[in-house]
Amino acid sequence: MWRDALLVGGKDLRIEIRGRVATMQVAPYAMLVLLLFGFAFDQDHNLLTQAAPGLFWVAVLLSSLLAVQRSFAIEATDGTRDGLRLSGLDPAGIFLGKVAAVVIELVALEVLLGVGVVVLFGTRLHDPALLVVSALVASVGLAAAGTVYGMIASGVRGRETLLPLLVLPVVAPVLLAATQCWMAALGSSTTDGWRWLSLLVAFGVIYLALGVVSFSTLVEET
């Protein structure tokens, strides 16, 4: 399973490095979302600083949808879906590999966006450890949930619209918890960030376990 996960994750990242679709499209999209938030709040600096964590995570959330869609688009061209089924790879390994690739892409995106938030909105740092750990755990949760639903949606008609409908309500608690963690980490609220982190961990664990258990069914049935 782990071997197959490495293989699939490496393959996805290699494709990304060669094609640079996520890099050239998702990252600019996320930056654009941030910029638009800036326009919408009309340069009210205090408000933007207050809202920065939330805006950041909304941008990440929207980008994660694109990343997941991309992750399954490469499995949909010219019979690669059948190729994956015929390959003899462990489905759990396929799931973990695809999640790992999406997590790495998301983390790279978060670093970029984080710099963007600091530059555009001018936020200060309070608890860097919480910031980094919560970002990692939230990315795992987003990627795991996204990959499960991406697989479900990739086999049906109208997948482009079905995926957001399935994923967004489900990952709403991630948005909530990650935002609260970041607010605590940035010192803009007095909430207990580590408590929220436990929620992120629970979400990530549930979805990783679910994907590992159900992916063989999903690969076959979709």
Binding site: K11, G79, T80, L86
Partner: peptide, 28 residues
């Protein structure tokens, strides 16, 4: 079994060599 169908099952962005290596590693 091996199947070559109308669709090639190849990843478009990767090179033939990488595609083949991936398929072989997947098949142990």
């Amino acid at each position: 079994v091996g199947l070559v169908g109308h669709q090639t099952g190849l990843y478009q962005e990767m090179s033939p060599l990488d595609n083949l290596r991936f398929a072989l590693r997947a098949a142990r």
